[in-house]
């Protein structure tokens, strides 16, 4: 715990100092996206890394969060906070509906079911033109404000987003340290072991599913109010796969891995953008090399220092 606290202080200290040292709105903007993706991966790593369930539909919950708060604030003039809460509520409801029957599925069948969910959300965003704006999307989503402070600059949104990343990190950390967390971790192993220990496997799987959906939905709302424009092309299967890549490249079942993976895969396209046609070659090679040489993800480079996780 001590070591972790030290890591936390150093990491978030550096992050919070960043905008003061590097004043470029470009880098701050990219870091906002890092923060937003980190929130999703911090939730997803609980589901995938601890509960051992795969989800290829996380973009669906991200979209539900984004669209719900975007539509409610833009069309109906609701305050953003209500919009975010409504998005969270809807996501939890949907994830419950999906989780209850889905978690009987295993492996690729579960992957297919969650993928199907994500695709259905995407189709609905495209086809329900009257509400979602269809493929053309909609804009002019109002900015968030926090304690009377209007979050319309990159800098203010940065602190707001990373403040939440910090809180979500602490939530996840305390979850893992609690008895619930220990039960959750045991799921990753053979299902029969936790069963024989009296753990209600089904309950914990559903719980992890809801947890991940909650994080994704919240991140979606942040995304909507930061971009102020939404269209279905931002919420495709490619994003769901990218999120899985983030936690696996970072290090599965490790909160630091979730942060690191989100960071690397947010920055990589920025660095590679000048290569244009060759970007895919480099990106693909990068993934293959990481998986061959660091199958436990990039966190395994510094296993000794950070001890979160198993």
């Amino acid at each position: 715990m001590r070591k972790e606290l030290k890591g936390l202080v150093i990491f978030f200290g550096l992050i919070f100092l960043f905008p003061l040292l590097v004043k470029s709105p470009y880098y701050i903007g990219v870091l906002v996206f890092w923060g937003i993706y980190s929130i999703i991966t911090l939730g997803l790593t609980i589901l995938m890394g601890y509960a051992g369930q795969i989800s290829l539909g996380q973009a669906g919950f991200f979209a539900v969060g984004a669209y719900t708060s975007g539509i409610l604030t833009t069309r109906f003039g609701l305050p953003p906070w209500l919009g975010i809460l409504a998005g969270l509520g809807l996501s939890l409801l949907l994830s419950l509906f999906l989780a209850l029957p889905s978690l009987k599925l295993k492996g690729h069948y579960l992957a297919m079911a969650t993928l199907g969910f994500g695709e259905i959300v995407h189709v609905v965003l495209n086809a329900w033109v009257g509400v979602t704006g269809g493929p053309s999307g909609f804009g002019e989503i109002p900015a968030l404000s926090f304690l009377g402070w209007k979050l319309d600059s990159e800098m203010s949104f940065f602190y707001f987003t990373w403040g939440w990343v910090f809180l979500f990190f602490l939530f996840s950390l305390s979850l893992l340290k609690s008895p619930y967390g220990r039960a959750l971790r045991s799921l990753h192993a053979e299902e029969r072991i936790p069963l024989s220990l009296g753990v209600n496997v089904y309950f914990y799987k559903v719980f992890a599913f809801l947890w991940a959906a909650f994080y994704a939905s919240f991140a979606g709302s942040l995304y909507a109010h930061f971009m102020t424009f939404l269209s279905p092309s931002s919420f495709t299967l490619i994003l769901s796969i990218l999120l899985v890549l983030m936690i696996v490249v970072g290090g599965l079942g490790n909160l630091w891995g979730a942060l690191l993976g989100a960071g690397i895969l947010t920055f990589l396209p920025e660095i590679l953008r000048t290569f244009e046609d060759f970007e895919m070659l480099i990106y693909g090679t990068f993934l293959i090399l990481v998986m061959i040489f660091l199958p436990k993800g990039l966190v395994s480079l510094r296993r000794g220092k950070v001890a979160t996780g198993d």
């Binding site: 709105p25 903007g29 269209s231 092309s233 396209p269 920025e270 953008r273």
Partner: peptide, 17 residues
């Protein structure tokens, strides 16, 4: 890449950097 997040980053980079 025709992607909105990427475009937003690229434009911010062009303008501010």
């Amino acid at each position: 890449k025709g992607d909105e997040t990427q475009t937003v980053n690229a434009v911010r980079k062009l303008i501010t950097r």
